[in-house]
Simulated assay, not measured.
Amino acid sequence: MIGAGIFVALGPAAAAAGSGLLFGLAGAAVVAYCNANSSARLAAVYPQSGGTYVYGRERLGDFWGYTAGWSFIVGKTASCAAMALTVGIYAYPQYAHAVAVAAVVALTAVNYAGVQKSALLTRIIVAIVLAVLAAVVVVLAGAGEAAGLSLHTDISPAGVLQAAGLLFFAFAGYARIATLGEEVRDPARTIVRAIPIALGITLLVYTAVAVAVLSVLGGDGLATATAPLADAVTAAGHLQLAPLVRAGAAVAALGSLLALVLGVSRTTLAMARDRHLPAFLAAVHPRFGGPHRAEVAVGVIVAVLAALLDVRAAIGFSSFAVLVYYAIANAAAWTLRPRRRLVPAAGLAGCLVLAFTLPVASVLAGCGVVGLGAALYAGRRFTVFR
Protein backbone atom coordinates (compact mmCIF):
# COMPACT_ATOMS: atom_id res chain seq x y z
CA MET A 1 0.00 0.00 0.00
CA ILE A 2 2.79 2.44 0.83
CA GLY A 3 3.90 3.04 -2.71
CA ALA A 4 3.27 5.36 -5.60
CA GLY A 5 -0.34 6.09 -4.64
CA ILE A 6 0.60 8.81 -2.18
CA PHE A 7 2.76 10.47 -4.85
CA VAL A 8 0.09 10.58 -7.57
CA ALA A 9 -3.37 10.49 -5.96
CA LEU A 10 -3.27 13.70 -3.90
CA GLY A 11 -3.44 15.99 -6.93
CA PRO A 12 -6.60 14.51 -8.50
CA ALA A 13 -8.22 14.28 -5.06
CA ALA A 14 -7.52 17.96 -4.41
CA ALA A 15 -8.97 18.83 -7.82
CA ALA A 16 -12.19 17.09 -6.76
CA ALA A 17 -12.47 18.38 -3.18
CA GLY A 18 -9.77 20.99 -2.52
CA SER A 19 -8.64 20.91 1.09
CA GLY A 20 -11.65 18.68 1.73
CA LEU A 21 -9.51 15.82 0.47
CA LEU A 22 -8.72 15.18 4.15
CA PHE A 23 -12.36 14.20 4.61
CA GLY A 24 -12.01 12.08 1.50
CA LEU A 25 -8.94 10.43 2.99
CA ALA A 26 -10.93 9.59 6.11
CA GLY A 27 -13.77 8.19 4.01
CA ALA A 28 -11.40 6.08 1.94
CA ALA A 29 -9.83 4.76 5.14
CA VAL A 30 -13.20 3.77 6.61
CA VAL A 31 -14.16 1.85 3.48
CA ALA A 32 -10.70 0.31 3.35
CA TYR A 33 -11.02 -0.82 6.97
CA CYS A 34 -14.32 -2.53 6.25
CA ASN A 35 -12.81 -4.19 3.22
CA ALA A 36 -9.73 -5.25 5.18
CA ASN A 37 -11.87 -6.70 7.95
CA SER A 38 -13.98 -8.67 5.49
CA SER A 39 -10.92 -9.83 3.55
CA ALA A 40 -9.16 -10.97 6.71
CA ARG A 41 -12.15 -12.98 7.92
CA LEU A 42 -12.57 -14.62 4.53
CA ALA A 43 -8.85 -15.32 4.15
CA ALA A 44 -8.85 -17.17 7.47
CA VAL A 45 -11.61 -19.46 6.18
CA TYR A 46 -10.26 -19.84 2.62
CA PRO A 47 -6.42 -19.58 2.68
CA GLN A 48 -6.06 -20.09 -1.06
CA SER A 49 -4.58 -18.14 -3.96
CA GLY A 50 -7.17 -15.95 -5.64
CA GLY A 51 -8.56 -13.72 -2.88
CA THR A 52 -12.13 -12.56 -3.48
CA TYR A 53 -12.35 -14.68 -6.60
CA VAL A 54 -12.32 -17.68 -4.25
CA TYR A 55 -14.47 -16.04 -1.56
CA GLY A 56 -17.16 -14.92 -4.01
CA ARG A 57 -17.27 -18.32 -5.66
CA GLU A 58 -17.55 -20.21 -2.36
CA ARG A 59 -20.01 -17.88 -0.61
CA LEU A 60 -22.08 -16.29 -3.41
CA GLY A 61 -21.75 -18.52 -6.44
CA ASP A 62 -19.56 -19.03 -9.49
CA PHE A 63 -20.65 -15.87 -11.34
CA TRP A 64 -19.82 -13.52 -8.45
CA GLY A 65 -16.47 -15.15 -7.89
CA TYR A 66 -15.70 -14.79 -11.58
CA THR A 67 -16.82 -11.14 -11.59
CA ALA A 68 -14.56 -10.42 -8.61
CA GLY A 69 -11.60 -12.10 -10.28
CA TRP A 70 -12.23 -10.34 -13.58
CA SER A 71 -12.57 -6.95 -11.87
CA PHE A 72 -9.38 -7.51 -9.92
CA ILE A 73 -7.37 -8.55 -12.95
CA VAL A 74 -8.50 -5.73 -15.25
CA GLY A 75 -8.39 -3.09 -12.51
CA LYS A 76 -4.99 -4.06 -11.21
CA THR A 77 -3.58 -4.52 -14.70
CA ALA A 78 -4.49 -0.88 -15.37
CA SER A 79 -2.93 0.02 -12.04
CA CYS A 80 0.25 -1.84 -12.99
CA ALA A 81 0.47 0.30 -16.11
CA ALA A 82 -0.08 3.46 -14.04
CA MET A 83 2.69 2.49 -11.63
CA ALA A 84 5.09 1.66 -14.45
CA LEU A 85 4.40 5.03 -16.07
CA THR A 86 4.97 6.74 -12.73
CA VAL A 87 8.44 5.20 -12.67
CA GLY A 88 9.13 6.58 -16.14
CA ILE A 89 7.67 10.03 -15.45
CA TYR A 90 9.76 10.56 -12.32
CA ALA A 91 12.94 8.73 -13.30
CA TYR A 92 13.35 9.81 -16.93
CA PRO A 93 10.39 11.87 -18.19
CA GLN A 94 11.83 12.27 -21.70
CA TYR A 95 11.54 8.51 -22.23
CA ALA A 96 8.78 7.72 -19.75
CA HIS A 97 7.12 4.97 -21.78
CA ALA A 98 10.39 3.18 -22.56
CA VAL A 99 11.42 3.26 -18.89
CA ALA A 100 7.96 2.01 -17.90
CA VAL A 101 8.26 -1.00 -20.19
CA ALA A 102 11.75 -1.75 -18.88
CA ALA A 103 10.48 -1.61 -15.30
CA VAL A 104 7.72 -4.09 -16.09
CA VAL A 105 10.16 -6.52 -17.69
CA ALA A 106 12.59 -6.30 -14.75
CA LEU A 107 10.00 -6.82 -12.03
CA THR A 108 8.30 -9.63 -13.93
CA ALA A 109 11.66 -11.39 -13.84
CA VAL A 110 11.90 -10.83 -10.08
CA ASN A 111 8.42 -12.29 -9.54
CA TYR A 112 9.26 -15.22 -11.80
CA ALA A 113 12.16 -16.10 -9.52
CA GLY A 114 9.87 -16.67 -6.51
CA VAL A 115 7.85 -14.83 -3.89
CA GLN A 116 10.61 -14.90 -1.25
CA LYS A 117 12.88 -12.72 -3.37
CA SER A 118 9.95 -10.44 -4.15
CA ALA A 119 9.18 -10.06 -0.44
CA LEU A 120 12.79 -9.13 0.35
CA LEU A 121 12.89 -6.50 -2.38
CA THR A 122 9.56 -5.13 -1.17
CA ARG A 123 10.96 -4.61 2.34
CA ILE A 124 13.90 -2.66 0.97
CA ILE A 125 11.68 -0.47 -1.21
CA VAL A 126 9.22 0.30 1.60
CA ALA A 127 12.09 1.32 3.90
CA ILE A 128 13.40 3.76 1.29
CA VAL A 129 9.95 5.22 0.60
CA LEU A 130 9.18 5.69 4.30
CA ALA A 131 12.48 7.54 4.74
CA VAL A 132 11.64 9.88 1.84
CA LEU A 133 8.10 10.53 3.11
CA ALA A 134 9.43 11.22 6.62
CA ALA A 135 11.89 13.74 5.19
CA VAL A 136 9.06 15.47 3.30
CA VAL A 137 6.90 15.76 6.43
CA VAL A 138 9.81 17.08 8.52
CA VAL A 139 10.90 19.81 6.07
CA LEU A 140 7.32 20.92 5.42
CA ALA A 141 6.38 21.03 9.10
CA GLY A 142 7.80 24.52 9.56
CA ALA A 143 6.76 25.89 6.19
CA GLY A 144 2.98 25.90 6.53
CA GLU A 145 2.85 29.69 6.41
CA ALA A 146 3.16 29.55 2.60
CA ALA A 147 -0.46 28.62 2.05
CA GLY A 148 -1.89 27.62 5.41
CA LEU A 149 -4.01 24.57 6.07
CA SER A 150 -7.68 25.52 6.04
CA LEU A 151 -10.91 23.63 5.52
CA HIS A 152 -13.45 25.69 3.59
CA THR A 153 -17.12 25.57 4.52
CA ASP A 154 -18.23 25.31 0.88
CA ILE A 155 -16.74 21.86 0.36
CA SER A 156 -18.94 19.78 -1.93
CA PRO A 157 -20.08 16.40 -0.51
CA ALA A 158 -19.94 14.99 -4.04
CA GLY A 159 -16.37 16.26 -4.39
CA VAL A 160 -15.37 14.67 -1.09
CA LEU A 161 -16.84 11.33 -2.21
CA GLN A 162 -15.00 11.54 -5.52
CA ALA A 163 -11.79 12.37 -3.68
CA ALA A 164 -12.37 9.35 -1.44
CA GLY A 165 -12.78 7.12 -4.47
CA LEU A 166 -9.57 8.44 -6.02
CA LEU A 167 -7.62 8.18 -2.75
CA PHE A 168 -8.86 4.64 -2.36
CA PHE A 169 -6.43 3.87 -5.19
CA ALA A 170 -3.61 4.55 -2.73
CA PHE A 171 -5.03 2.20 -0.06
CA ALA A 172 -5.99 -0.78 -2.21
CA GLY A 173 -3.27 -3.27 -1.40
CA TYR A 174 -4.29 -5.34 1.59
CA ALA A 175 -6.13 -7.90 -0.55
CA ARG A 176 -2.76 -8.75 -2.07
CA ILE A 177 -1.90 -10.37 1.24
CA ALA A 178 -4.98 -12.57 0.98
CA THR A 179 -4.20 -13.60 -2.61
CA LEU A 180 -1.00 -15.25 -1.36
CA GLY A 181 -2.87 -17.65 0.94
CA GLU A 182 -1.13 -20.75 -0.40
CA GLU A 183 2.35 -19.27 0.11
CA VAL A 184 2.02 -17.98 3.70
CA ARG A 185 2.87 -19.91 6.85
CA ASP A 186 -0.10 -20.29 9.25
CA PRO A 187 -2.43 -18.15 7.05
CA ALA A 188 -5.38 -18.27 9.48
CA ARG A 189 -3.29 -16.33 12.01
CA THR A 190 -0.83 -14.42 9.84
CA ILE A 191 -3.24 -12.92 7.30
CA VAL A 192 -5.81 -11.86 9.89
CA ARG A 193 -3.14 -9.91 11.77
CA ALA A 194 -1.19 -8.58 8.78
CA ILE A 195 -4.05 -6.86 6.96
CA PRO A 196 -5.28 -4.45 9.71
CA ILE A 197 -1.73 -3.71 10.89
CA ALA A 198 -0.65 -2.79 7.35
CA LEU A 199 -3.75 -0.63 6.87
CA GLY A 200 -3.23 1.24 10.15
CA ILE A 201 0.41 2.06 9.39
CA THR A 202 -0.52 3.25 5.92
CA LEU A 203 -3.29 5.54 7.16
CA LEU A 204 -0.95 7.24 9.65
CA VAL A 205 1.67 7.84 6.97
CA TYR A 206 -0.82 9.16 4.41
CA THR A 207 -2.48 11.52 6.88
CA ALA A 208 0.85 13.05 7.91
CA VAL A 209 1.93 13.55 4.30
CA ALA A 210 -1.44 14.97 3.16
CA VAL A 211 -1.57 17.51 6.00
CA ALA A 212 2.04 18.58 5.38
CA VAL A 213 1.56 19.08 1.64
CA LEU A 214 -1.76 20.89 2.08
CA SER A 215 -0.21 23.24 4.64
CA VAL A 216 2.26 24.46 2.01
CA LEU A 217 0.41 24.28 -1.31
CA GLY A 218 -3.18 24.70 -0.13
CA GLY A 219 -6.08 22.98 -1.88
CA ASP A 220 -5.85 25.00 -5.10
CA GLY A 221 -2.09 24.63 -5.43
CA LEU A 222 -2.23 20.91 -4.78
CA ALA A 223 -4.98 20.48 -7.38
CA THR A 224 -2.73 21.85 -10.13
CA ALA A 225 0.50 20.20 -9.00
CA THR A 226 1.94 17.66 -11.42
CA ALA A 227 4.31 16.21 -8.80
CA PRO A 228 2.67 17.24 -5.50
CA LEU A 229 5.37 16.20 -3.03
CA ALA A 230 8.24 17.54 -5.13
CA ASP A 231 6.32 20.78 -5.77
CA ALA A 232 5.63 21.17 -2.05
CA VAL A 233 9.25 20.88 -0.96
CA THR A 234 10.24 23.27 -3.76
CA ALA A 235 7.61 25.81 -2.65
CA ALA A 236 8.90 25.48 0.90
CA GLY A 237 12.37 26.51 -0.28
CA HIS A 238 14.07 23.12 -0.11
CA LEU A 239 15.12 22.79 -3.74
CA GLN A 240 17.86 20.31 -2.90
CA LEU A 241 15.28 17.83 -1.61
CA ALA A 242 13.19 17.74 -4.81
CA PRO A 243 15.47 15.26 -6.66
CA LEU A 244 15.37 12.96 -3.65
CA VAL A 245 11.58 13.10 -3.62
CA ARG A 246 11.43 12.31 -7.33
CA ALA A 247 13.77 9.36 -6.82
CA GLY A 248 11.61 8.22 -3.91
CA ALA A 249 8.51 8.39 -6.09
CA ALA A 250 10.17 6.21 -8.72
CA VAL A 251 11.22 3.68 -6.09
CA ALA A 252 7.72 3.75 -4.58
CA ALA A 253 6.19 3.05 -7.98
CA LEU A 254 8.56 0.11 -8.41
CA GLY A 255 7.40 -1.25 -5.05
CA SER A 256 3.75 -0.91 -6.01
CA LEU A 257 4.35 -2.50 -9.40
CA LEU A 258 6.19 -5.40 -7.77
CA ALA A 259 3.28 -6.22 -5.47
CA LEU A 260 0.63 -5.59 -8.14
CA VAL A 261 2.11 -8.00 -10.67
CA LEU A 262 2.43 -10.57 -7.89
CA GLY A 263 -1.24 -10.28 -6.90
CA VAL A 264 -2.65 -10.18 -10.44
CA SER A 265 -0.73 -13.30 -11.47
CA ARG A 266 -2.06 -15.24 -8.46
CA THR A 267 -5.67 -14.34 -9.25
CA THR A 268 -5.02 -15.27 -12.88
CA LEU A 269 -3.74 -18.63 -11.63
CA ALA A 270 -6.91 -19.27 -9.62
CA MET A 271 -9.22 -18.35 -12.50
CA ALA A 272 -7.22 -20.45 -14.97
CA ARG A 273 -7.55 -23.46 -12.67
CA ASP A 274 -11.31 -23.12 -12.97
CA ARG A 275 -11.16 -22.66 -16.76
CA HIS A 276 -12.40 -19.07 -16.66
CA LEU A 277 -9.10 -18.17 -18.30
CA PRO A 278 -6.92 -20.29 -20.60
CA ALA A 279 -5.87 -23.46 -18.74
CA PHE A 280 -2.17 -23.16 -19.66
CA LEU A 281 -1.97 -20.14 -17.32
CA ALA A 282 -2.53 -22.46 -14.33
CA ALA A 283 0.96 -23.98 -14.57
CA VAL A 284 3.16 -23.67 -11.45
CA HIS A 285 6.94 -23.58 -11.84
CA PRO A 286 8.48 -26.81 -10.44
CA ARG A 287 11.44 -24.96 -8.91
CA PHE A 288 10.24 -21.50 -7.92
CA GLY A 289 6.70 -22.49 -6.97
CA GLY A 290 5.01 -19.53 -8.68
CA PRO A 291 2.52 -19.37 -11.58
CA HIS A 292 5.24 -18.59 -14.12
CA ARG A 293 3.06 -18.55 -17.23
CA ALA A 294 0.52 -16.25 -15.60
CA GLU A 295 3.34 -13.96 -14.47
CA VAL A 296 4.77 -13.73 -17.96
CA ALA A 297 1.33 -13.16 -19.53
CA VAL A 298 0.52 -10.38 -17.06
CA GLY A 299 3.94 -8.82 -17.64
CA VAL A 300 3.47 -8.76 -21.41
CA ILE A 301 0.00 -7.17 -21.19
CA VAL A 302 1.15 -4.55 -18.68
CA ALA A 303 4.18 -3.70 -20.82
CA VAL A 304 1.91 -3.09 -23.82
CA LEU A 305 -0.45 -0.90 -21.77
CA ALA A 306 2.47 1.03 -20.28
CA ALA A 307 3.64 1.82 -23.79
CA LEU A 308 0.24 3.20 -24.79
CA LEU A 309 -1.80 4.52 -21.84
CA ASP A 310 -2.01 7.81 -19.94
CA VAL A 311 -1.24 7.53 -16.21
CA ARG A 312 -4.21 9.54 -14.89
CA ALA A 313 -6.80 7.74 -16.99
CA ALA A 314 -5.65 4.43 -15.50
CA ILE A 315 -6.16 5.56 -11.89
CA GLY A 316 -9.91 6.23 -12.11
CA PHE A 317 -10.59 3.04 -14.05
CA SER A 318 -8.52 0.98 -11.63
CA SER A 319 -10.36 2.46 -8.63
CA PHE A 320 -13.76 1.57 -10.12
CA ALA A 321 -12.85 -2.03 -10.91
CA VAL A 322 -11.18 -2.62 -7.54
CA LEU A 323 -14.15 -1.13 -5.66
CA VAL A 324 -16.38 -3.65 -7.48
CA TYR A 325 -13.98 -6.37 -6.36
CA TYR A 326 -14.21 -5.30 -2.72
CA ALA A 327 -17.99 -4.91 -2.90
CA ILE A 328 -18.16 -8.62 -3.70
CA ALA A 329 -15.72 -9.35 -0.85
CA ASN A 330 -18.00 -7.58 1.61
CA ALA A 331 -21.05 -9.37 0.25
CA ALA A 332 -19.25 -12.68 0.74
CA ALA A 333 -18.21 -11.77 4.30
CA TRP A 334 -21.83 -10.83 5.06
CA THR A 335 -22.75 -14.51 4.69
CA LEU A 336 -20.22 -15.77 7.27
CA ARG A 337 -21.87 -14.88 10.60
CA PRO A 338 -25.37 -13.42 10.97
CA ARG A 339 -24.36 -11.47 14.10
CA ARG A 340 -21.34 -9.80 12.50
CA ARG A 341 -22.84 -8.16 9.45
CA LEU A 342 -22.50 -4.46 10.24
CA VAL A 343 -18.94 -4.05 8.94
CA PRO A 344 -19.41 -5.97 5.66
CA ALA A 345 -22.72 -4.16 5.05
CA ALA A 346 -21.02 -0.79 5.56
CA GLY A 347 -18.16 -1.88 3.32
CA LEU A 348 -20.50 -3.01 0.55
CA ALA A 349 -22.44 0.27 0.63
CA GLY A 350 -19.25 2.32 0.80
CA CYS A 351 -17.67 0.56 -2.17
CA LEU A 352 -20.71 1.11 -4.36
CA VAL A 353 -21.05 4.77 -3.38
CA LEU A 354 -17.38 5.54 -4.03
CA ALA A 355 -17.37 3.60 -7.31
CA PHE A 356 -20.29 5.52 -8.79
CA THR A 357 -19.11 8.96 -7.64
CA LEU A 358 -15.81 8.65 -9.52
CA PRO A 359 -15.35 10.75 -12.70
CA VAL A 360 -17.96 9.87 -15.32
CA ALA A 361 -15.38 8.60 -17.81
CA SER A 362 -14.03 6.17 -15.21
CA VAL A 363 -17.52 4.91 -14.34
CA LEU A 364 -18.47 4.38 -17.99
CA ALA A 365 -15.21 2.61 -18.82
CA GLY A 366 -15.47 0.49 -15.70
CA CYS A 367 -19.06 -0.54 -16.36
CA GLY A 368 -18.17 -1.38 -19.95
CA VAL A 369 -15.23 -3.63 -19.05
CA VAL A 370 -17.03 -5.34 -16.15
CA GLY A 371 -19.98 -5.88 -18.49
CA LEU A 372 -17.63 -7.36 -21.07
CA GLY A 373 -16.42 -9.79 -18.45
CA ALA A 374 -19.98 -10.83 -17.67
CA ALA A 375 -20.62 -11.41 -21.38
CA LEU A 376 -17.52 -13.58 -21.65
CA TYR A 377 -18.70 -15.58 -18.65
CA ALA A 378 -22.08 -16.15 -20.25
CA GLY A 379 -20.54 -17.35 -23.47
CA ARG A 380 -17.56 -19.28 -22.11
CA ARG A 381 -19.09 -22.67 -23.02
CA PHE A 382 -18.65 -21.74 -26.64
CA THR A 383 -15.06 -20.52 -26.36
CA VAL A 384 -11.72 -22.24 -26.49
CA PHE A 385 -11.40 -21.77 -22.72
CA ARG A 386 -13.94 -24.51 -22.09
Rank of each mutant, 00 (worst) to 15 (best):
A68W: 11
L140W: 01
G88F: 08
L60S: 08
F7C: 03
F63R: 11
V74K: 06
A78E: 03
A279D: 08
L10M: 08
V137Y: 06
R287Y: 00
L262Q: 14
A306C: 06
Q116I: 15
R337I: 06
V233T: 13
H292S: 02
G373I: 01
Y174T: 05
G75F: 02
V343C: 03
V104T: 03
A103I: 10
V30C: 13
L22A: 05
P278F: 08
F280Q: 04
V30H: 10
P93I: 01
L348F: 08
F320G: 15
A329H: 04
I177F: 05
L281C: 02
A349I: 00
E182S: 14
A15F: 01
Q94R: 10
D310S: 11
L222G: 05
V45E: 15
G61E: 00
F7V: 00
V261N: 07
A68R: 11
G350N: 14
V136A: 10
V99T: 09
G200F: 09
V74C: 12
F7Q: 05
G148T: 01
T268K: 14
T108W: 05
A247I: 06
E295Q: 14
C80D: 01
G366L: 09
A175E: 15
G3N: 14
G56Y: 05
Y46E: 11
I89K: 11
L85W: 08
R287P: 02
A28S: 11
M83Y: 13
A361R: 10
Q94I: 04
A198Y: 03
F320C: 12
R273D: 05
S49V: 12
A297L: 04
G3P: 04
R341M: 10
S215G: 15
A378C: 10
T179P: 00
E295A: 11
V105F: 12
A208V: 01
F382R: 10
R193D: 05
I201S: 08
R123E: 14
K76T: 04
V184T: 00
A134W: 09
R287A: 04
L348G: 01
L107C: 06
A172I: 12
L336C: 09
L120R: 15
S362Q: 07
A127T: 15
Y174L: 04
T202S: 15
Y92C: 12
A175N: 14
A313E: 04
G50I: 04
S215A: 15
V322M: 00
G181Y: 02
G114C: 09
F63L: 13
P47M: 07
V298G: 00
A232S: 00
L281K: 07
G350P: 09
A4M: 14
I195G: 10
R381W: 08
G173R: 02
A306T: 13
V126I: 03
T179V: 07
P157I: 02
V160K: 00
A333W: 07
T226R: 15
Q162A: 07
G290T: 13
G255K: 02
A188M: 14
A84Q: 08
Y174N: 00
G248W: 10
S215H: 12
T267Q: 10
V369D: 09
P93N: 03
G347T: 07
F171T: 13
P47E: 13
A68M: 14
S156F: 01
A378T: 05
A40W: 03
A314W: 02
L239F: 15
Q240C: 06
S71H: 11
Q94Y: 09
V213W: 06
H152F: 06
I201A: 10
